[in-house]
Design a protein around this nucleic acid. Sequence first.
DNA 1: AATCGTTTCATACATTTGTTTGAGTTATGA
DNA 2: TCATAACTCAAACAAATGTATGAAACGATT
Lengths: 215, 215
Amino acid sequence: MKSIVKDLTHERILNAAESLFALHGYDGATMRQITEKAAVNLSAVNYHFDTKEKLYAETFTRIIRPLNAERLTILTQAELLAGDHPVPLPAILESFIRPTFMLAAGRPQFLALMSRNFSAPPPFMREIMAAEFSAISQRYIRALQHALPGVPPMELFWRMFYTVGALLFTAAHRETMALLSHGAIQSPDTESIIRRLVDYASAAMCAPRREPAMS
Amino acid sequence: MKSIVKDLTHERILNAAESLFALHGYDGATMRQITEKAAVNLSAVNYHFDTKEKLYAETFTRIIRPLNAERLTILTQAELLAGDHPVPLPAILESFIRPTFMLAAGRPQFLALMSRNFSAPPPFMREIMAAEFSAISQRYIRALQHALPGVPPMELFWRMFYTVGALLFTAAHRETMALLSHGAIQSPDTESIIRRLVDYASAAMCAPRREPAMS
DNA sequence: AATCGTTTCATACATTTGTTTGAGTTATGA
DNA sequence: TCATAACTCAAACAAATGTATGAAACGATT
C-alpha cells in the first residue's frame, strides 16, 4: 500500500535526477548514472516513474511548480499592499526573480536544470512548460501594464522575455563565470545577485522607445 | 590530395550537423541522423572530422568565429568614427547584437545552435569557448568603460552578461514564442528585433545603482 | 500466522550508439 | 600510363542505452 510518508526511493531518484539532468541534459544523463547516484536499483525508475521521459517531467515540475506558486504569492501580497495603485516595477520584478534564488538555496543544480530546460528543452516538454507558465505570464503582463501604462503591451512582453533570458543565463552560469571574466569576478552572494538583476531589469523595462531608423 | 575548392562532403556534413546539433543537442543528434541528412556515408564523419566531438567543435567554431570577427570589425569602425570620444552606448551594443542576426540570415538553426551551446555546452566545449570569447569580452568591457565611466567595471561586466543572456534567449526562442504569448505576438522582422534589444540593453546598461537595503 | 499488495533486485533483451575495418573507387601528379 | 594519395562505402564491432521480466523480500491487515 502507498505509505503516507513520501517514498524514500522515489525521493532519492528525483534528487539524483535533478542533479544529473541539470549537469548533462536529458540525453546526456543515463538511467544507470541516476540510479547509481540514488543508490537504488536500475529498475526502480521504471517502477516508480514508468519511463525516463516521465521521470524528467516530474523532476522539472517538482522544481517549477513551487517556484511559480511562490512568485504568485509574493506578487499577490504586493498587489494587496499597493491597494489601488499599481505595484512598483522593482517589486514586480523582485517577486519574479527572488524566489528563483531562494528555492535554489542548498540545491546546487536547481538553477542549472531550470535554465537548461528553458534554453534547450527536450521536445516532449514543450506542452508541459506551456501549461506551467500560462497563468504566470498572464499575471505578470497584467501587473506590468499597470506599472508602466506608457509602454505598449507588446513591448512589455518582449522586455519581460529578455529579462527571463538574463535571469536564466545568470542561473546557468553562476558558478562557471570566473572563466570568462579572467578572475576579476568572484561569485557574489544571493542578495547581490538579486539586487543587480532587479536594478538591471527595472531600468530596462521602462526604456524609452527609440524612433525607428528612417530617412 | 586536398583540393583547392572546399570539399563537398566536408561542407555537407557541417551543414547537416549545424541543423541537427541545434535541434537536438550534442547527445541528441546521432551520427546516423547527420550523415543521412547530409546524404553521405556514415564513416565520412570519422574520416573528415575524426570524432563526433571534433565535428561538434568545428560546427560551432564555424559559426562563432566569423560572428565575433564581424563584431570586432564593426566596433573598431565605431571607435575610429568616434575619435577621442567614447563610442555611444547604443552603438556598442548594436555592434554586438546586429551581427548575430545578420549572420543567421538564411540559416534557420544558426541561432539555436549558438544559444544551446552557451546555455548547455557539452563539457568538452568549455575551453574552446573560453578561447573564442577571451578577446571579445575584453574589448567590449573596455568600450563600455569608456562609454559609461560612472558605472563600476564589475557592474558593467554583469550587465553585459545579462545582455548576452537576453540575446541568447531571444535567439533560442525566436520561432517558438507564439506559444507563451497566447498568439498575441507574431514573429517580428530582424530590424525590429535588433532595435528592441538595443533599446532594452541601452537602458539597462546605465541603470542607476540602488542603495543596498539597510536599516 | 497467513495473505496479498507493494517494492526491490539481478538478469536479460532488443536497439542504438560512436567508431573501425578493409576493400573498393576516384582523382592527382610525375 | 602508372603509382600513390585521397576519398567513399558496406559491413561489422564492442559498448551503452532504455526497458521488461520474474522471482524474491517486505509490510501491513486480517
